[in-house]
């Protein structure tokens, strides 16, 4: 039995302690916006915020968390898709299939929270999520737009 603080609510979880946070979110809590892409911390599809920092939920057992830590998933990022990253994504039409995008958005929003005016090089280095549809250039432009900094063209 674990207690987690997810999107501002305390949740009781009955699950084996070594279950990855990703699968607790998806299967115990029904928060399927967080995606499974690789299960080995390679792709970033499962990115959530833990106390504001980006965490790959597939590689972390639920036992590593306690109710004092604030876990935020894509469903809890904003009540109405009004986060600057979501707004920039809408304006630039970033998603294609969209499967990687919850992870992209959570990684990008954590990046801006830690570094509100990142350089292009910093964005390229920090954003290691995989997108097979190939949205990288729009992800880059979206982060720059949300940060209020000009694109490199």
């Amino acid at each position: 039995m674990a207690k987690l603080n997810v999107n501002g609510r305390i949740m009781d979880i009955q699950v084996e302690a070594d279950t990855p946070l990703l699968w607790v979110l998806r299967e115990q809590l029904g928060l399927t916006g967080t995606k499974y892409g690789c299960g080995v911390a390679q792709c970033g599809s499962c990115t959530v915020h833990v106390d504001g920092a980006a965490v790959r939920a597939c590689a972390m057992p639920v036992s590593a968390f306690n109710e004092g830590q604030k876990i935020v998933t894509i469903e809890g990022l904003s009540p109405d898709s009004s986060h600057p990253i979501q707004q920039a994504w809408l304006a630039l039409e970033v998603p294609q299939c969209g499967f990687c995008q919850p992870g992209m958005i959570m990684a990008a929003s954590a990046l801006l929270a830690a570094n509100p005016k990142p350089t292009e090089a910093q964005i390229r280095e920090e954003m290691t999520n995989i997108c097979r549809c190939g949205t990288y250039n729009r992800v880059l432009a979206g982060i720059q737009r949300a940060a209020g900094i000009g694109t490199s063209g």
């Binding site: 399927t32 469903e75 898709s81 809408l90 995008q101």
Partner: peptide, 27 residues
């Protein structure tokens, strides 16, 4: 013209095959 399917891809509400839930379902 902006595509018709962007909004639900921004907040986790787009349902993919992997996300389906049916009553009584097993995995």
């Amino acid at each position: 013209i902006p595509r018709l399917d962007t909004a639900q891809k921004l907040n986790g509400s787009q349902i993919y095959g992997m996300d389906l839930r049916l009553p009584g379902m097993l995995n």
